[in-house]
Write a protein that binds this DNA or RNA. Sequence first.
DNA 1: GATGAATGAGAGTTCATTCAT
DNA 2: GATGAATGAACTCTCATTCAT
Lengths: 228, 228, 228, 228
Amino acid sequence: MNKKEEISLPTTEERQEESVSCNAKRRQILDGAEAIFLESGYEGASMSQIACRARVSKGTLYNHFENKAALFGAVIEDLSRSKLAPAICQSHLTAITCAEAFAQLAERFISILLQPGPLRLYRIIVSEAPHFPDLADTFWRHGFGRTLSTMTQWIEFWIERGAIRTDDPVFAAEQFMALCQTRLVQRKRFELPIDSSEEQIRFVAGRIGKAFVAIYGTEAEQAAARQA
Amino acid sequence: MNKKEEISLPTTEERQEESVSCNAKRRQILDGAEAIFLESGYEGASMSQIACRARVSKGTLYNHFENKAALFGAVIEDLSRSKLAPAICQSHLTAITCAEAFAQLAERFISILLQPGPLRLYRIIVSEAPHFPDLADTFWRHGFGRTLSTMTQWIEFWIERGAIRTDDPVFAAEQFMALCQTRLVQRKRFELPIDSSEEQIRFVAGRIGKAFVAIYGTEAEQAAARQA
Amino acid sequence: MNKKEEISLPTTEERQEESVSCNAKRRQILDGAEAIFLESGYEGASMSQIACRARVSKGTLYNHFENKAALFGAVIEDLSRSKLAPAICQSHLTAITCAEAFAQLAERFISILLQPGPLRLYRIIVSEAPHFPDLADTFWRHGFGRTLSTMTQWIEFWIERGAIRTDDPVFAAEQFMALCQTRLVQRKRFELPIDSSEEQIRFVAGRIGKAFVAIYGTEAEQAAARQA
Amino acid sequence: MNKKEEISLPTTEERQEESVSCNAKRRQILDGAEAIFLESGYEGASMSQIACRARVSKGTLYNHFENKAALFGAVIEDLSRSKLAPAICQSHLTAITCAEAFAQLAERFISILLQPGPLRLYRIIVSEAPHFPDLADTFWRHGFGRTLSTMTQWIEFWIERGAIRTDDPVFAAEQFMALCQTRLVQRKRFELPIDSSEEQIRFVAGRIGKAFVAIYGTEAEQAAARQA
DNA sequence: GATGAATGAGAGTTCATTCAT
DNA sequence: GATGAATGAACTCTCATTCAT
C-alpha cells in the first residue's frame, strides 16, 4: 500500500445494443426531454416545452412514447444508465494509502453529486419515486445499484489487501456513500449556500477518507493512518 | 459515562407570536395545503384540491395568501418549524455509554426520517428548492439549521464529558446526520424496498453509534467501546 | 262523431321545479349546446364551438357539466322534454269523422317530424343511442314514451266512441306512428328530395287517416268512411 | 292464390364492372373501413383505426381514396349496394294468401332491419345524410330506391292477381315499408328494449300483412282474409 | 371576510394528412 | 404502389386567478 500505483476500478459491461438507424429522433427527443424534466420536474415540464426543446413536433413525441409518463420513465432510465454509474465506474485513482484512496474516491463522488446534472437527477428521482413505482427499480438497476456494487467491489479490493476489515462490505459501501453527503452534498440539495471550491471538496473528502478508515480500518492501517 | 442518567436535549425557545384571533381560518388552510402539497408536490397540487381539503372556498385561499407560491412558502415554514425540529428537540435519552447515546439518537433520528410526513417534506424541499429561493432560508432557520444546532450542542455535551474530541463539532454533527442516512433512509428516499422494522433500525443505529465513536471518540472512550 | 267539436288531447303535467336563480347560465349553455350538437352530431361538435355559441368560456362549460358526455345527456333530456312531447300534447283538433281526426293528427305529427329541430333530434338520437345507454331511457321517459302514451289515449278516446276497435291500443298507436313516416318523413330522414308543401302533407295525412280506419275501424265506421 | 307456389322476387341486374387487378387492396380497405365506420360513425372513426383494421398503412389509404370523406362515400356506396338491396331481392317466398305473402315479406324485411349491419347502416346514413349531399343519391340508387322498386314490383304482382287495388303502387310500397317499422324496428333504432324473438317478429309481421290487406285489398280479398 | 361562478391560457393527447424512402 | 414517421391544428379538460355578491 505504500507503493504508488495506478488502480482502476472494475468496470461493468455497457450495453450498446441500440439499433443505429431511426433512433436519431428518439435520441433527439430524449435529450430535449432530459433537459426540460431536470429543469422543471415531472409536473412542471410540459410536452410542448419538450417538443420545442427537442426541435420536433408534439405529435412526434407521441409517435415515440406512449405518453408523458412513459417518456419520463425512458428519460430516467437513460440518465441513470448514462450519467451516474459510468461516472464512477470509469475512474482511475492514484493513491498511496488506504485513507488517501477513499479520500480520492470521496472527492470524485462528491464532485459528481454536486454537478448540476446528477444533482437535478437526484431531486427528480426523490421527488417522483412515490408516483412512479417502476422508477425505483430502473434507478436501482442502472444507477444506485451499480454504483453501490462498484463501491462494494472497491472495498473488497482493500479487504484483500488487509487494510479494511468488515463482515458486511455492502453496508460499509452504503456507509461510505452516506458519509460522502456530509456538509457539501447534503446542504447543496437544500440549496443552502456552500463553498464548493476544489479545496473545500478535497478537505471534506479527506476527512471522509480518515473517518472511513477509523471505522473499518485494520489495526495496522489505523496505526499507519495515525502516523501520516 | 457509566452511570445511567436521564439526559434531556437542550430545547430551543419557540416563537408564539401568532395573533390569536382570526387565524383559525389560516390554520385550517395551512392544514389542508400541507396535506395536499405533501401528497402531490408543488406543481401536482391544485388550489381547488387544497380549498376542498381545507373546507374553504377558493376565494378564501386568496384572501389569506397572495398566490400559490406564497401559500407553499407558508406551508414549508410551518412544517419546518412544527414537525422536524421539535421532534428532535423534545427527545429524552437514556444511555450508559457514549456509543449507546449516539446509537439512541441515531435510532430516534432515523425513525423520524422514515415517517411519511418528514419523508414527504424532504422530497418536496429537495425538489422545489431550486425554484423557491426563500425556501432554503426558511428551511434552514426553522428546520435543518435548528436540528443541526441541536446535534451540535449534543456533541459539545459529550466533548465536555471527555468522550468525544473534535475541533469542529458542527462538522461532526453534519457527519452524524449523514451517517444516519446509511442504508435505510437513503434507500427509502428512492423508494427501494427496505426492512424498516424496529430491530433493523436499532441495528443500523447501533453501527452508526459505534462508527461515530470510532471517528471522534477519545482514546479512552474507544478503549471502553472496544471492551463493550 | 258527425258533430263538429273541439277535442283536446289529454295533456300531461309538466314539471316546472327548476330553481329560478343561477340557472340562467345553465340555460344559456344548454341552448348553445343544443344548437351545436344538432348541427354537428356528438363527435362532430366541439366544446370550443359550444362555448363560443353559448357566449361563455370553456371553463364555464365544465363548471356546469362534468364533461362532454354529461352535457350531451342534459341536452337530449332537455330537448326530449321540451320539444317533442309538448308539441303533440298541446294540440287541439277540429274533426268531423274518425278518419278525419286521425288525418289531422297525422298531419300535425308529420309536420313536427319534418321540422328541422325534431328531425335533427331524431338523427342524433338514432346515431348515438348505441354509445349512450342512458339516452334511450331519457328519450323514452320524456319523448317517445310520452308521445306514444298520448297517442294511445287518443285511440282509447275513439274506442270509447265506438269508432275504433282493437285489443291492443298501444300497438295500434305504434302502428299509427309508423304510418306517419310514409313517404315524407322516411325520405326526409335520408335527405331525399320531397315535396313538403302543406297540400302534400295533408294529402299523405289523409291517406294515413283512411288507412288507419281501414285497419282498426269498426264496421260502422268503415261503412261511414266508404260513403265519405 | 290458394295454391302453394314458389315465388321469387324480381331481381335487378348487378353491376360487375370492377377491374379485377389491383383492387384487392381497395377491397381490403373498404372492408376495414366499413367495420370501423359502422362501429364508430363518421366522426368517431379515425383513419388510423381503419388502416389498422384493414391491415394497411395509413399512406395506402390515401393512395386509394382522396380523403376520409371520399372513403366514407365509397363505403356507403359499397354497403348500400352489397348489403341492403340484395337481401330483399334474393328472397323466395312461400305463401298461400295475399295477407300471408305480405306477412312473410314483412317478416323478412323486419329481420333484416333488425340485424346489426343494416341497423348500423341506417344509423350512420340518417346521421350523416345532411353532411354528405351525395350520400342521399348514392343510397337512393343502390339501397332505398332499389328496395322500394322491388317492393313496388311485388305489389304490382298482386295487383295483377286481383288481390290488391291501388292507383299508386309506389305509395303503397312506401306505406308497407313504414308499417314494417311498427314497434320492433322503430324501438330498436332508439335502443329501447324489445323482444326480437322469431315468434314476436312473426306476430308483428302477421299484423302488418293483415293491415296491408285491410288498406289495399280488393273486397274479394278482404272477405277471404276475414274468413281466414 | 367569505364565497364560488367565470375566465382564458395552457395542459396532455389525437387526428387527418403529407412525403421521403 | 406501399410505407410509417412527422406534422401542427384542434380536441377535451384543468388550472390559477379574479370579482361581483
